[in-house]
């Protein structure tokens, strides 16, 4: 009698898998099954609002780390991290010249993990500026701005400017000596423009000196106007990567 191995009945793992991923609630949230087959893996990307920025398949050179060093993605990740930590900081911060500095001090000393959140926000902001610059260098030296990606490079330059402005407007908010004088120096640079300099400085800081008006203007720009603009341009930037045929690669 030849002993052939008979298939065993479903084990505990299979039962659990079936219960977890083949039920009414799971399939109401994720339309595809668990991504363990090529079909489901592609569906996982295509049917997810966050992941569908990706194509379902990409050229294998594009997953080499040295092709991009993940710089663009990491810039975006910094933006996300800054949004999360920034929202947390907003809980404790009031953009009023009498309160702002004390709020930051209290955040550092009295709020559990307040110092950590502020530090994270600061270092991620510096890192984002660096990462965006490095991303621009990567795109340049790999010739990735060439047709048909010309316009996306322009969007990228706009995003670089928005990143610098985001960082600059945030610099004033702690309302300490470092903030006040850095913004005074920075806005004086803007005020040096030949014809419209004085006017543009006036509009930027809402007065002749960096004071209460400047603080509320920078705060509003920093927490809503510039992030919204950046988000819009980022959407265009990511969308255009897909539309222009993915990452650049040799013809």
């Amino acid at each position: 009698m030849a002993m052939t191995e008979q298939p065993k009945g479903p084990g505990l793992g299979d039962w659990l898998y079936d219960r977890l991923f083949h039920n009414y609630i799971w399939s109401s949230v994720f339309r595809s099954g668990y991504p363990n087959t090529p079909r489901n893996q592609m569906l996982a990307i295509a049917t997810n609002v966050f992941l569908h920025l990706h194509p379902t398949r990409i050229h294998k050179t594009h997953v080499k780390i040295t092709h991009t060093y993940c710089l663009g993605g990491l810039s975006f990740f910094m933006f996300l991290g800054l949004t999360v930590t920034g929202v947390m900081l907003m809980f404790y911060y009031v953009p009023d010249v009498n309160r702002a500095f004390n709020d930051v001090q209290a955040l550092e000393t009295n709020v559990r993990f307040g110092m950590l959140i502020r530090n994270l926000h600061r270092w991620m902001a510096h890192a984002m500026v660096l990462l965006v610059l490095m991303h621009m260098m990567r795109v340049f030296y790999t010739g990735a701005y060439k047709p048909p990606r010309e316009f996306n490079w322009v969007v990228g330059v706009i995003l670089l400017v928005l990143t610098l402005l985001l960082s600059f407007t945030g610099y004033l908010l702690p309302w300490d000596q470092l903030a006040l004088w850095a913004i005074t120096v920075g806005t004086n640079i803007a005020g040096a423009a030949p014809i419209l300099g004085g006017q543009s400085r006036l509009v930027l800081i809402g007065g002749f000196d960096v004071g209460p008006n400047a603080l509320i203007r920078f705060y509003t720009l920093h927490v809503i106007a510039l992030p919204l603009l950046a988000a819009i341009f980022m959407s265009v930037h990511f969308w255009r990567i897909r539309r222009d045929g993915g990452l650049a690669r040799p013809l």
Binding site: G81, V97, F101, V104, Q105, E108, M115, L116, R118, N119, L120, H121, R122, W123, M124, H126, A127, V129, L164, S167, F168, Y171, P174, W175, D176, Q177, L178, A179, L180, W181, A182, T184, V185, G186, I189, D209, V210, G211
Partner: peptide
Amino acid sequence: FVVLATFFNAPLLNKANPNVTPNPSKAPWY
């Protein structure tokens, strides 16, 4: 970044004072 933020604190000087100008006054690094 969590490690970095644990060991290196973001700077916070005196409260802003328009009458005391630090010498040198510097813009943000970028």
